[in-house]
Nucleic acid binder design. Structure first.
Lengths: 217, 217
DNA sequence: TACGCAAGTAAACGATTGTTGACATGGGTA
DNA sequence: TACCCATGTCAACAATCGTTTACTTGCGTA
């Protein structure tokens, strides 16, 4: 049943196929590890570190709770693995760079609209969660800062051009909006926002993102 | 030592003096209750519901942990009291009927700009953080929904007017932005957003809030 | 001054949580 | 086919947590 997917670490498609398996089967440490990371990422992102129990994660992944300590050493170790995964995914070297502000806006729109169902927006939420470990917190902050710099660069920001500095602030505001929306749609489930359709969201959201990011207007 | 402040329940000044007392002394149930709510609000806002222990709250307030159950019935009951307090503080001006969307926008701007330094923005975090407890989350969601309804009403929304329904969604997006900004400015401390000056924040933020809330444009 | 009641405390309880150690099982190789 | 080792499970442990109960204390009034 395709559990022998050879993950090569390069094509995003292959990685996401393996990652889409919530319930592992057979005895394969790698598959089990990945199932745990996947389940943990969801839980940590939507419920936070402390409210997430290792028993919930193990149940989501279909394994026994003792395997979390076996493979990651501790709950904290699993959290760190999740964080590292998110950081890797957001790494500039591994991401397809947006060519234009239009693409950026479209991507942000997609994140928010997909938020109740898709993984990517939840991973950004993970960057807002703290386990109480200061080193992890510093990594989180740096990752978010680099992410917003990429976004701003697509809109015309450059660290070397003083006149473009307000763009970085505006990009961070765009991210704040996205994070707030994702959180209210997924973790909090505020109505009518949580069940709003793509059409309902896209119009106001695009207006706002253009105000913040589109310097051509 | 000024512990005999006669609180009359009417002047906000007098209330805030009593509320500024973290450590209560003497035997006065009201003072104790308020000290617990104050301590709890801080803890819940900065650490979240689940990571906050009743023993920490009691220690912060300088009382024995059993008093939380005595006065609020449970941890959850204390959380609800904190929520109600937050709503009351966000409400009073709204209760007086905000004269215009301009005043609403100005108030939202103030919350965000003051975020790294003042108490109130921490209470907004209280509205955002997931609690890991279903009942507490239901309380939180209801509170957010009520608050965004009041905001939308100031901008012209009414539950009885179908044509005004998008305004509620837009109000919720405005709140999402505000909550995201407060989170990035305070808990995550993303730079340069966390240290941005009021001037730097006000211009883009007002543009966005007008796009979302000001139907006269 | 003594008594009663409200406010406060300490200790204990039951449930939950992350972790550990002993054991079970399955798959691959000789 | 049998054996060995990696993977997986179960039961238990220690610590923590919210809650409860029995007791203490302080203040106000008669």
């Amino acid at each position: 049943m395709g559990n022998e997917v050879q993950e090569s670490k390069t094509p995003d498609g292959a990685a996401s196929v393996a990652d889409d398996e919530l319930i592992r089967s057979g005895r394969d440490a790698d598959v089990t590890r990945r199932a745990l990371v996947r389940a943990a990422r969801r839980r940590f992102a939507t419920e936070g570190y402390r409210a997430t129990t290792v028993r919930h994660i193990a149940a989501d992944a279909g394994v026994n709770v003792a395997l979390i300590n076996r493979y990651f050493g501790s709950k904290e170790g699993l959290f760190e693995a999740c964080m590292n995964r998110t950081v890797d995914e957001l790494d500039p070297q591994t991401r397809v760079r947006a060519a234009s502000v239009d693409e950026v806006i479209a991507r942000l729109l997609t994140h928010v609209v997909e938020a109740p169902n898709a993984d990517d927006p939840l991973q950004l939420l993970l960057l807002l969660r703290s386990s109480g470990d200061e080193n992890a917190d510093a990594i989180r902050r740096r990752t978010l800062e680099r992410f917003t710099e990429q976004l701003a660069a697509a809109a015309g920001w450059s660290a070397e051009v003083p006149a473009s500095q307000p763009l970085l602030l505006r990009a961070q505001m765009a991210i704040a909006l996205m994070l707030g929306l994702v959180m209210l749609r997924t973790a909090t489930e505020v109505q009518p926002l949580a069940s709003a359709s793509a059409d309902q969201l896209t119009e106001p959201l695009e207006q706002v993102l253009r105000v913040l990011l589109d310097t051509r207007t």
